[in-house]
Nucleic acid binder design. Sequence first.
DNA 1: TTGGAAAGTCAACAAGGCTGACGTAACTTC
DNA 2: GAAGTTACGTCAGCCTTGTTGACTTTCCAA
Lengths: 166, 166
Amino acid sequence: MADQTPSGESLLFLTDEQVRKGIEAMFFAYRGFTADPDRILEGMDYGRAHHRAIHFIHRSPGTTVSNLLTILGVTKQSLNRVLRTLIEDGLVEARVGRRDKRERHLFLTAKGQELERELSDAQRARMRAAYRAAGPQAVAGFRQVLEAMMDPELRRQYQGLKESGA
Amino acid sequence: MADQTPSGESLLFLTDEQVRKGIEAMFFAYRGFTADPDRILEGMDYGRAHHRAIHFIHRSPGTTVSNLLTILGVTKQSLNRVLRTLIEDGLVEARVGRRDKRERHLFLTAKGQELERELSDAQRARMRAAYRAAGPQAVAGFRQVLEAMMDPELRRQYQGLKESGA
DNA sequence: TTGGAAAGTCAACAAGGCTGACGTAACTTC
DNA sequence: GAAGTTACGTCAGCCTTGTTGACTTTCCAA
C-alpha cells in the first residue's frame, strides 16, 4: 500500500534517504567552506578559531569580549587565548570602554583588516561561485533551510547580525 | 551612479553583504547541525569523530579502512584511534577480506546500528523540521548550493554515495 | 560598603587532528 | 622464489582548540 498523503509527492523530499543526503551534503560542503581559510592560515600561527574571532570583530567593530563569547559559543578562557595572540601580534586592538571601563571594545587594526580581507576574499570567492552556479532561487532556498536548522537563540543572533549589517 | 548590470537586480544575491550572510548562515547552521548528536555523545566516551565513522560505515557497509580514510579526510592514525574503540566496544566489526586478506571490511553490529539509529534520528529530526519549514523548492536550492560549494573530489565522493544510496 | 558583573589569568586536562617511524601480512611483479 | 608494494595497525610525540576550576582585579550600582 503506497503511503498516500494529501499533498502527494511534494513530501518526497522528506524521505529518510533525502534527509540523509542533506546531512552528507552539509558534511562535505562544510569541508569546502573552511578549506580556503584553513589553507591560508596554516603556516601562520593561527587557526580556525582566530579566523572566527577576526570575522566577527570585523563584522561588529567595537563589540565587547562577552558579546563575542556569546556569538562564538566558547569559554572565555578559550577565546582569551586566541584574542591574546591577536592583540600581541597587532591584529586586534582592545579599547577600554568609556562608559563601562570593565569592558573591552574590540577593533581590527590595519594589519588585522588586511588579514581579514585575505581570508574572506578566499571564502567569499567560493561562496560567490557556488551562488552563481546555483542561481538566485537556489540561494534563497539555501538560506531558508540553513536558518531553519539553527537553534532558536543562534537564529536570533544571526538575524541580529543581519540587521546591523544591512 | 547605480551599478546597472544587464540582468538588473537578479545579481543582488552576489553582493558582498549577501555572500557574507551566507557565510554566517553556514557557521550558525553547522552548529545546530552537530548539536543533537553532540549532546547524545557527551557522557559516552565518544565524540564527533566516532559519529562520522559510524555514519559512513552504516551508509556503506563492508567499506574498507582506506575507503573510509578517503571519505573522512583524516590520517589513518587518527581514524584508527576511533575505530579501535568502536571495535573494542562491540559497535563495529572488522572482517578480513575474502579476496584480499589485507583489507578489513567494516560493518556495524546490532549494537552499533542501535547507536547509529539514535544519532541519526536526532539529526534527521532537525533536518526534517528544517525541510518542512522551508519547503521542497528551498530544499532543492539548499542542495544545489551545497554541492557547488564542495571541492571537486569531495563532490565526486558525495555523488558516489548518492548513487549507491538511491 | 558590599555584592556582583566583566574581564583576565593560571593550571590541568581531553578530544581529535597531525607527522614520522616501524612492523607485519598479503598481494604483485620480476 | 625474491623483491617490492599495499593495507593496516601501532608507538611516540606534537599542536590546536575546546573544557573545568580557582582566583584576582576592576568597576558599577544598590
